[in-house]
Amino acid sequence: MNNIIVYIETENGKIADVSLELMTKGRELANKLNCNLEALLIGDKVSHLSEELFLYGATKVHLAEDSRLEFYRTLPYSAIAISLFKSEKPQIALFGATSIGRDLAPRVSSALTSGLTADCTSLEIGDHNDAKSGKEYKDLLYQIRPAFGGNIIATIINPEHRPQMATVREGVMKKMALQQAANGEISKIDIKPILNDSDFVVEIIKRDIQERKIDIKGASIIVAGGFGVGSKENFKQLFELAHLLGAEIGASRAAVDAGFADHARQVGQTGVTVRPKLYIAVGISGQIQHTAGMDQSAMIISINNDPNAPINNIADYAIVGDLNEVLPRMIKSYKKNIK
C-alpha cells in the first residue's frame, strides 16, 4: 500500500525506454520514501517482460493480459489503471509523456480526482508548509516542469490528493538497471469485473506505426559534430556525451559527407532545422548553411580550436580548445555535478 506505481509502455514486444527511465527514477524516490516500487503492465502476451522490470527494482508487477489488450486503447487501459489505483492506493503514479501516456494519465487522474503534472523535467521529494492553513505536509512529490512556453519553471505539488501523478518525456531521466534483480512477484489483475463491452467501442481500423527512427527534430538537447571532429572514431565521444545528457547527435553536412554520421542527423539548410534548448557544436566552423538550421536554439555552446570560427559569433559560450580535451572534461564534470 502507498507505494509508487510506474505505468509500463510496450512497443513491439519491448518495454519503452521512457518506462525504464521512470522505473529508475521511481526506485530513487521509493528509497527516499521507504516504500516499494511497483509496475503496471498491460497488453497481450507481455508477462515475460516482468523479468526486466525486476531488474529495474520492481517488487511487484501488476499484470493485465488479454488478446483484446494487444494495442493501447484509452477506455480499457484507463479502466484497469483506475481500478488498480483505487485498490492499491499508490502515493505516486508515473507515466511516460508519450502519445499513450499523455492520453491515459489525464483520463485516470480525472476519474480519481487526483492532480496530474505533465512533462516534468525533474521529480523530487520535499515538504510543504501551507501558508494559509498552517498545515505541514511531509514527503510530497515536487513535480518540476517548464511552463508558459518554457519561460518559467514551476514546482507543482498535490498536497491532499493521491496518487500524485506526473508524466515525464523520454530521455529526461536516466535509465539504470540494478546489478541484481529485485525479488519481485507478478500480481495478476482479474480484468473480467473491470472491463465492459462498451470499453471497446473505439475500434482500431488501421495501424501504421514505424520502428523508431533517428529523429533529431524533437530533441531538446543536440550534440552536433562537424568536419573538425576529424574521424568517425572521434565521433564516439560525442555519442558518449549525448547519451549522458539525454541528447541526440547532429552533424554538419561536411561531417555527413565525410561519412562520420548518418544523413538523418544532418542539421542545416539541406538537412533538418532544429531549435533545441541546448545545441553543442563540436568542430563545426559555422557556415551559414549549417547555422540556418540551428541558430534558433535557445542556447549554443561551441567547441572549436579556431578562436575566429564564425560559429563563435552566434554561440552563447565559445570554448576555444581541442575537442579531445574538452569532451572528456565535460563528461567528467557532468558526472561529478549531477545529483
Binding site: T113, S114, G115, L116, T117, H128, Y142, Q143, P146, G150, N151, I152, I153, A154, T155, I156, I157, N158, P159, E160, H161, P307, N312, N313, I314, A315, D316, Y317, A318, I319, V320, G321, D322, E325, V326, R329
Partner: peptide, 22 residues
C-alpha cells in the same frame, strides 16, 4: 488538486558570447 509551490523565471540574456578556455 495541484498547487503551484514555486515559480522561477528563466532569465534571458542578450546573445553575447562568453569565451571559455578548455
Amino acid at each position: 488538486p495541484t498547487k503551484v509551490k514555486k515559480i522561477e523565471n528563466i532569465v534571458f540574456q542578450a546573445k553575447e558570447s562568453k569565451r571559455l578556455s578548455a
